[in-house]
Simulated scan of single mutants.
Amino acid sequence: MSGLSFSEMEGCRNLLGLLDNDEIMALCDTVTNRLVQPEDRQDAVRAILVYSQSAEELLRRRKVHREVIFKYLATQGIIIPPATEKHNLIQHAKDYWQKQSQLKLKETPEPVTKTENIQLFQQQVKEDKKAEKVDFRRLGEEFCHWFFGLLNSQNPFLGPPQHEWGPQHFWHDVKLRFYYNTSEQNVTDYYGAEIVSLRLLSLVKEEFLFLSPNLDSHGLKCASSPHGLVMVGVAGTVHRGNTCLGIFEQIFGLIRCPFVENTWKIKFINLKIRGESSLAPGTLPKPAVKFEQSDLEAFYNVITLCGTSEVRHNVKQFLDSGTGDQV
């Protein structure tokens, strides 16, 4: 085991960086008595540091020349007369590393025991939670940029798509609930990644729609469940060519894929499109999500239940309350 302190270890590592490869390999042979066969320079440096009994022993090696120690001290801002003997240079290096160790000890924070430190710690926790919320909203924004950019790019009016749309972006048991209200209201459910991806694709590829999300504070809301389901609610306008046809509101349920890093797949979608004819004459409100984060969380609690008549009653009650019906 190395007899070097942390500061000595770092200092010697930097000093060894001034030697060329042949000198490093030769020094490694000397320090380890040729018992270690390093694969590369990095392995050799590691072996030299580990098998050296002390910093002084290492620096006294004949292969660590006086000029190298002098040059190292100069890089650290320590000005020594050029004629200084090697043993004095070694002492200067040791003194410097000892001071570095003392400085690091002073910089080490004290245990959180004082009242003011506890308050600072609690404040930091609150700030960390705020940061999580900011990152959480950012996830929603990035997802919407990606999703609507990819979907809209399949519109033939925009030229050939740059990226592939398909079921790979959905969980295999994904559900799409599609509300559309033009002259009358209709609700249709679609199940499975293939069917859901094709139905969404048909909106832009066959019906030539363009969905423009409103990603300001009114148009985008996000929430998460304790189990890792992220819900993104977004509102926007629906276009065909140069004509604005109406507005849409949408909830996505996203679950992180455990097998691919930083990848989320869509678990469910609730999409509601309201045509201009279903709105008050001459009015087209700014697209805004009408539910709050608590509504999204309540929506999660409803959709995670399944099967019983009680659950179906709860779902209907939830939709009739106006929250679920928004999307």
Rank of each mutant, 00 (worst) to 15 (best):
K99Q: 15
K286R: 11
L49S: 05
L49M: 04
T308N: 00
L200D: 03
R138S: 12
W264Y: 15
W264N: 12
G282F: 02
S277G: 01
E261H: 14
F318W: 08
E276A: 01
T84P: 03
F147E: 03
W264H: 14
K86M: 01
E39V: 05
V112Q: 07
M25E: 05
Q250K: 13
V64F: 02
T32N: 02
I48C: 04
S321T: 06
C257P: 03
Q102G: 00
L279E: 02
A44I: 05
Y300I: 00
D95L: 12
I80H: 01
A298W: 00
K265C: 07
K267A: 15
V187R: 12
D95G: 02
C257S: 14
N186Q: 12
L176A: 07
F170W: 04
K130D: 15
S2R: 14
M231R: 10
L27E: 09
S153D: 15
E292W: 00
Y180N: 13
V311M: 00
R62T: 08
I266P: 04
T75L: 10
Y96C: 03
T308Y: 00
S52N: 07
L158E: 08
L284W: 00
K205T: 15
S153V: 06
Q53Y: 08
E39P: 00
G17S: 05
H218S: 09
L245T: 09
L89N: 08
V327Q: 00
L211K: 06
F291Y: 04
E310R: 01
C144F: 02
R137E: 07
Q37M: 01
K126E: 13
D29S: 13
I303C: 06
V196R: 03
V112A: 06
A26V: 10
V260C: 06
Q100V: 15
K130P: 05
Y179T: 11
L59Y: 03
E116W: 11
L305S: 10
C257N: 15
K272L: 10
E56A: 14
S309C: 05
R66V: 04
I80T: 02
P160I: 10
C28S: 11
R13H: 11
L19I: 06
S217G: 02
E116I: 15
Y300S: 09
E56P: 11
A298M: 09
L220I: 01
E164C: 03
K221N: 01
I90E: 05
L73P: 13
P285L: 06
V125W: 02
T188V: 14
Q119E: 14
L176V: 07
P111S: 08
I251D: 05
G17D: 05
K272N: 11
A193P: 03
L200A: 03
W264M: 10
L120K: 15
F136R: 13
P82N: 07
S224T: 12
H239F: 12
F252L: 04
H227R: 14
H313S: 07
N242D: 14
P167I: 05
I255M: 13
N117A: 13
E56I: 15
K133Q: 14
Q98F: 11
N14S: 11
L211E: 03
N270A: 08
A223W: 01
A26K: 15
R62M: 02
T113P: 00
